[in-house]
Design a binder for these strands. Structure first.
Lengths: 118, 118
DNA sequence: GGGTCCTGTCAGCCTTTTCTGACAGGTACG
DNA sequence: CGTACCTGTCAGAAAAGGCTGACAGGACCC
């Protein structure tokens, strides 16, 4: 098994993932898409959510790399954007969090940076 | 290996954890506490954050079970609340999210739930 | 007593996120 | 043509989260 994924996500990456998954609607979206890929309008109807709102949530999930959308042409010529769940895997432990926090770019932070800057 | 951690967190639990960790300040707090336990005021100074604000973040982390605070009496009689990081462990995969999403209580989902609960 | 630490909480502001209702475009079918 | 789907985006309202400054109490030391 050559697959030895180094569990060392960037602070920013992990932050995107966690804040993306830390939302009930988005958790449900992932669950629904895992059961069966779907396109935006149908998914919106399925989980009872307005389309613009779902669009926003999907954007957030895709930005975090948890979901991918592909624009496909149906037989009848309609353009439909199908979304699939990516096989992501993250481990959440104090160590992982600490290592990630150390690489947070998160704009001008306090003492640490200023001290270093001297 | 008797260690077979059942990765089946409740929807609500996982939601609390993810939204707690999905914040740069709180990631940093966990990182700082992992390096060395500390009490509120000192930690506030260390990471350059107002005490009431840190208090709120610690509350959120503790509610998620990622951190525990114990009120200890110092020699000089001062009451200080020391915080420690708990050895938490969560796996983040599509399947885990889906299973968790299925158990989301999602607070007051109208009276429908209460009706169902009967 | 006054000063210095520690703890906690509160009202109110400010920023971000969430959400809705419109609007835009495209292609196909009757 | 109008209708029915699909896609996207926008302004602005509503809700949630983040943050500050002030206040409360308690225990110590000078």
């Amino acid at each position: 098994m050559p697959e030895v994924p180094p569990p060392a996500p960037t602070g920013d990456e992990l932050l995107r993932v966690l804040s993306a998954l830390g939302n009930p609607h988005r958790m449900r979206i992932v669950a629904a898409l895992l059961e069966s890929r779907n396109y935006v309008s149908a998914l919106a109807r399925e989980i009872g959510m307005s389309r613009p709102l779902l669009h926003m949530h999907l954007q957030r999930l895709e930005a975090a790399g948890l979901v991918v959308g592909t624009l496909e042409l149906a037989e009848d010529g309609k353009a439909m954007k199908y979304f699939d769940v990516t096989p992501f895997f993250y481990e959440l432990t104090p160590g992982v969090i600490a290592r990630a926090a150390a690489t947070l770019t998160e704009a001008e932070k306090t003492e640490a940076e200023k001290e270093e800057a001297k």
